[in-house]
């Protein structure tokens, strides 16, 4: 009886973890491309899609497209209203830098504002991730 109870407890504890991993993933990646000059953000808030290459792990070498909210701003200066969706300590985005990322798969649910996506015309199929947290690696 006791092993069954322990299994049930373990399953109950594991369920939320699976739900979280279905929504989010954490990895280290190199920022390989910022495809154009970042547009001004003083009148409009927008997210901007950048290209990353995953470092290490099972996904090592894979290319990812990641939307960063207001990338002209240091992450710690993002307005309060967005802090539950955007965080980290990164100050600026530069190609060649390594970032520790926490990404969400459901970009459209997280953010319904303007997404500047220079890759749209050439590639609609690759998923776009929302960056929830980014730190220098």
């Amino acid at each position: 009886m006791r092993p069954i109870a322990l299994c049930l407890v373990a399953l109950a504890l594991a369920a939320p973890a699976r739900a979280e991993s279905a929504e989010e993933l954490a990895l280290t990646a190199e920022l390989v491309e910022i495809p154009s000059e970042l547009p001004p953000d003083d009148l409009y808030d927008y997210a901007y899609v950048m290209k990353y290459r995953v470092q290490g792990g099972a996904q090592g070498g894979q290319t990812l497209l990641v939307a960063h909210y207001k990338p002209r701003q240091p992450r710690e200066k993002i307005e309060k209203a967005m802090r539950d969706r955007v965080g980290g300590k990164l100050k600026r985005f530069r190609t060649g830098d390594l970032h520790r990322l926490v990404l969400r798969r459901d970009l459209e649910k997280v953010f319904d504002g303007a997404v500047v996506d220079e890759y749209f015309a050439a590639d609609r199929k690759t998923p776009r991730y929302w960056c929830k947290q980014v730190d220098p690696a």
């Binding site: 808030d45 303007a114 997404v115 500047v116 749209f120």
Partner: peptide, 10 residues
């Protein structure tokens, strides 16, 4: 917001 020329169609 601000994206009614191209982004809204995307």
């Amino acid at each position: 917001d601000g994206g009614a020329s191209t982004l809204v169609r995307q």
